[in-house]
Design a binder for these strands. Structure first.
Lengths: 213, 213
DNA sequence: ACAAAAATGTTAAAATTTTAACGTTAAACA
DNA sequence: TGTTTAACGTTAAAATTTTAACATTTTTGT
């Protein structure tokens, strides 16, 4: 099945960053038994305009229906396909500190298709310890696991000084995307992707928000 | 000391979202003993243009020096003041699941001035349990703690269906900013701020990134 | 003391993103 | 069966954001 020439060509970053929110809404609504949703209602619950919603959804391979809106199930499926989350994605997690362990234990990601297949850490004191169903492995085993299990995404939750070397190791081993939970800025080759989770940055952004009133 | 009329008037959101990254860089550089940094060098390490960096920093109350650039210490201080992170900010955390517990245990936030003063959960089985130095409290105690300790920020890491009611309770109790770790979209009065941590959304954004190549 | 040059702050243009406007489609109902 | 109308998809305008260009400043070196 050939992907649609227009819709698959390249979705602007501003739009890609909103697609996950539409997906979440579509999921929630469908789970609540709602079958149809309009651009206006999506806009209101997400704090956008209906124009933006329609403009955004025009980038995915899915059509609304006049007078009804969008089928929540159809929208959910189309968004999942567009984002590439309509199938499981294998991940490894590097850095078994508090944050890393929490993510490994947080089954919601697994339910959403992000399957962690290994947890790694460089500290000998941590290697061998259990984190939920995982046994923490040493960094020497990382490349092998990535190759054997065709791991696509690496989640980095190490101290920020260690982040770049870990990123390099992951990319060299064959991972194509990095979720960066550190405050470091990661440099990767053009064919790889990085998304920063920005947890501390979000808190700081919030500090600015609460200050000015 | 009157805040500068121009610089404090309102910094565009696009800029505010980058200020924490400059702050992080300035901190890292100063800790490494680097005293000066240019807009070009900042731009290169953050993946921006030097123009954007200079434009962004023109919003804060701080001047660079011709031929030298920006003093890392000065920049760090000015950014911290602009964002409002030059003093401690009290936070409470609601939802002592895996993610919540990890954040409570992650001392980096505390070192950066975000002081958690209480951890709350609605599940009777969890209330009374220890999370690091905290004893999980019931929701009935939330309002009292927020008022007595003048808590400014609430961190929400509950199941998404519970997020809005928890947000309402926090706002009613007097919190002025919310860090939302759930996938719910939170509605709050105009005088309050919400920042979404977008962890799952980031993974999904990454899925799109790894798909298209 | 003067000239050269590196890097800022600022102005203005370019690019992108968001919003509004509106023609079109198809469901609902008389 | 025809009319009404809600809501889409699309075009174009408005607003915002990013980038380029350059005049200005100030350090450095001769």
């Amino acid at each position: 099945m050939e992907p649609d020439a227009i819709t698959s060509l390249k979705i602007p970053g501003s739009v890609v960053r909103r697609l996950p929110r539409y997906l979440t809404q579509a999921q929630h609504l469908r789970q609540e038994g709602v079958e149809w949703v309009s651009s206006l209602s999506l806009a209101e619950t997400l704090g956008l305009t209906s124009s933006t919603v329609r403009q955004d959804l025009s980038h995915i391979d899915f059509q609304g229906v006049s007078k009804r809106g969008y089928s929540t199930a159809g929208l959910e499926g189309a968004l999942a396909r567009t984002l590439g989350v309509d199938h499981d994605i294998t991940c490894v997690l590097v850095g078994a500190g508090n944050l890393g362990r929490a993510l490994a234990l947080h089954d919601e990601f697994g339910r959403q298709g992000f399957k962690i297949v290994g947890v790694f850490d460089s500290a000998p004191a941590v290697v061998g310890k259990k984190v939920g169903r995982f046994t923490v492995q040493g960094m020497t085993e990382l490349a092998g696991v990535v190759r054997e299990q065709k791991v696509e995404i690496g989640i980095i939750s190490v101290p920020h000084e260690a982040a770049q070397p870990v990123a390099d190791q992951l990319i060299t081993a064959g991972v194509r995307g990095l979720l960066n939970l550190t405050t470091a800025h990661l440099l990767v080759p053009a064919e790889a992707s990085v998304v920063d989770a920005r947890v501390l940055a979000s808190l700081r952004e919030l500090a600015y928000g609460v200050k000015r009133r």
